[in-house]
Lab assay of single mutants.
Amino acid sequence: IRVTEDENDEPIEIPSEDDGTVLLSTVTAQFPGACGLRYRNPVSQCMRGVRLVEGILHAPDAGWGNLVYVVN
Rank of each mutant, 00 (worst) to 15 (best):
P32N: 05
T4P: 00
L57M: 06
V43L: 12
I1Y: 00
G33P: 04
T4D: 00
E10L: 11
V71A: 08
S44K: 09
G63H: 01
R38D: 08
C46T: 13
W64I: 03
A34I: 03
E17P: 05
R38K: 14
T21D: 01
L24H: 00
T28K: 14
E10Q: 06
V22K: 00
V68E: 05
E54L: 04
G65H: 03
I56Y: 07
S44M: 09
E17C: 10
G49I: 15
Q30W: 13
Q30I: 09
E17A: 08
G55R: 05
V22T: 00
E54S: 12
I12A: 06
V71G: 03
V70H: 09
G33E: 10
R40C: 09
A34P: 01
T28S: 13
L67T: 14
A29C: 08
E5F: 14
L67G: 09
D18C: 11
I14V: 10
G63S: 03
N66T: 09
A59L: 08
G65R: 08
H58P: 01
P42D: 09
C35H: 10
P15L: 10
R40T: 09
R2H: 05
C46A: 15
Q45K: 14
R40F: 13
R40K: 10
P15M: 14
E13G: 07
P15D: 10
D9H: 10
G36M: 03
D9V: 13
E54C: 07
P11T: 08
D6Q: 09
V22N: 00
A62T: 14
S25N: 08
L52W: 01
D61R: 11
S16H: 09
L37Q: 00
G36R: 02
V71K: 00
V50W: 00
Y69S: 03
C46L: 12
E17V: 06
I12D: 00
N66M: 03
T28N: 07
G33R: 11
I1P: 02
P42H: 13
Y69G: 04
L23P: 10
N41R: 05
Y69I: 00
E17Y: 04
L24A: 02
E10R: 09
E5H: 05
L52H: 12
G36A: 02
V27F: 02
L37W: 05
A62M: 11
E5W: 13
I1C: 02
G20Y: 06
D9T: 13
E7D: 04
Q45D: 06
I14F: 03
R2M: 08
V53S: 11
E13P: 08
F31H: 03
Q30H: 15
T4K: 11
L67K: 10
D18E: 11
D9F: 11
D6Y: 11
I12N: 02
P60Q: 01
I14M: 06
P60Y: 00
T28I: 15
I56K: 14
I56V: 13
V27D: 02
L67H: 12
G33L: 10
T21A: 04
N41G: 07
V3W: 01
D61Y: 07
I12L: 12
W64A: 02
V71Y: 04
E5C: 08
T28V: 13
L24K: 00
A29P: 02
A34R: 03
G49H: 15
L67Y: 12
L67V: 14
R48F: 13
D18W: 09
I14Y: 04
I1V: 09
N66R: 11
V68N: 06
L57T: 00
C46H: 10
Q45V: 04
S16W: 12
T4L: 08
Y39V: 05
C35N: 08
E5L: 12
R51G: 06
T21N: 12
W64K: 00
N41F: 04
R40Q: 08
S25P: 02
G49R: 13
R2C: 04
V70I: 14
S16F: 12
C35D: 07
L24V: 04
S44D: 15
V53R: 09
L23A: 12
L57P: 02
N72Y: 11
Y39L: 01
D61A: 12
P42F: 04
H58T: 06
V43K: 06
N72S: 11
G36T: 02
N8D: 08
T21I: 04
I14L: 11
G33T: 11
V50K: 01
N72M: 13
E54V: 00
C46I: 15
R2P: 07
A34T: 06
Y69N: 05
V3N: 00
T21Q: 06
C46K: 15
A59D: 01
L24F: 07
Q45A: 12
L57F: 09
L23M: 07
P32S: 07
V43I: 14
L24S: 01
V68H: 02
E54A: 10
Q45R: 12
L57I: 02
G49L: 13
G20W: 01
R38V: 14
V71R: 03
Q45Y: 14
